[in-house]
């Protein structure tokens, strides 16, 4: 297993390098000019100097390698400095955002908490709702509960977040006035009152995102439980007189969780990508919103860094899912 993990990790390096090159070249084609906002009265030679100050004067491959150096060497050193108080990256050039005129990583670190609060919370809530639904609807296949559950997951699958989000805003903010429609990120949770406020503003985005997670995971859970419920070992477990609860919740569930856990692991990277659309609707200024504003503002280093970080997470969690599968299921042998 260890050799397998190491081999996968080593193999992921060329993949990631290639992905970063693809993203870089795609952005290189971008027609937008970062100097477009500069007033026309600025003379062209000054504009040229500003362009060079942004690092645009050099040929593509030099800029690509500089970005790689900054991303893979300088930024980790900054992190070490930050944790241990050393000065490794002192005076080194970092990846700068054109839009904010500050290091990309600092902006990402600022935006991370909002995304984690809303998107990660919704992922957890979605899973917590999905598992019982999946288990029970498989246990009572074709019952009324199963039929309604299947219908609701189908709806959750089909209703896009830009509709469900807007719909809950119309119902709960505009008509009923119960919940705020805009997520206030400046809110500091200091006491009971602000905690309640934070909870109120989180309910809608979390539920909209959780609906999607629930739809996916409960379908997986149900299918996986159905596969296992008719196996011989279940009959054996019943025959030796175990209680129904033990049979289903211990024997069947543990075996059915194997594929579901890998599916859950595969979904984790998208948490960090932020939910672009949902964040846009509820005005949560998380990573997804950062990405889309960066795309609109032609902030290429930001787009490059954020998309690449998402790609790293996707590749890593693919490996995590595969390794987990091998660890959890002793029948799987990779070596």
């Amino acid at each position: 297993m260890l050799t397998y993990t190491i081999r996968r990790l080593v193999l992921s390096i060329p993949t990631l390098l290639f992905i970063s090159l693809v993203i870089f070249l795609l952005l290189e084609l971008a027609p937008g000019d970062p100097m477009a906002q500069v007033p026309l009265t600025v003379p062209p030679e000054v504009k040229e100097r500003m362009r060079e100050a942004l690092g645009l004067g050099e040929p593509t491959h030099v800029r690509f390698f500089k970005w790689m150096y900054q991303f893979f060497v300088v930024e980790p050193m900054m992190l070490i400095d930050h944790i241990f108080g050393t000065a490794l990256a002192e005076g080194q050039q970092r990846v700068l955002s054109w839009q904010f005129r500050s290091p990309v990583m600092d902006v990402i670190v600022q935006r991370m908490p909002q995304t984690l609060w809303v998107v990660a919370m919704s992922y957890v809530v979605g899973i917590l709702i999905a598992l019982p639904i999946g288990i029970y609807s498989a246990y009572r296949q074709y019952s009324l509960f199963d039929q309604t559950g299947t219908f609701i997951t189908m709806v959750g699958y089909s209703v896009p977040p830009f509709f469900s989000g807007v719909l809950v805003i119309v119902i709960f903010s505009v008509q009923l006035g119960w919940l705020p429609s805009i997520y206030d990120t400046t809110l500091d949770v200091v006491g009971w009152e602000t905690f309640k406020q934070q909870l109120m503003q989180m309910v809608m985005p979390v539920m909209v995102l959780a609906l999607q997670t629930t739809a996916q995971i409960s379908r997986f859970m149900r299918a996986s439980m159905l596969d296992n419920l008719n196996q011989d070992y279940v009959r054996t477990a019943r025959a030796k007189g175990l209680s129904e609860w033990t049979v289903v919740m211990v024997h069947v569930l543990r075996n059915s969780m194997i594929p579901v856990i890998t599916v859950i692991a595969l979904g984790v990277p998208y948490i960090f990508g932020g939910a672009i659309i949902t964040e846009q609707i509820f005005k949560v200024n998380g990573l997804g919103q950062l990405l889309i504003t960066a795309i609109q503002a032609n902030d290429l280093p930001m787009v490059q860094t954020v998309t690449f970080m998402i790609a790293v997470l996707i590749v890593m969690f693919n490996i995590v899912a595969d390794v987990l599968y091998g660890v959890l299921d002793p029948r799987i042998r990779y070596d």
Binding site: I19, L29, P31, A311, I314
Partner: peptide, 15 residues
């Protein structure tokens, strides 16, 4: 499969 698709889609459309 390991590309972040929605961001890339947005970039492509813009480009």
């Amino acid at each position: 499969l390991s590309l972040p698709l929605l961001p890339l889609l947005l970039v492509m459309v813009l480009l």
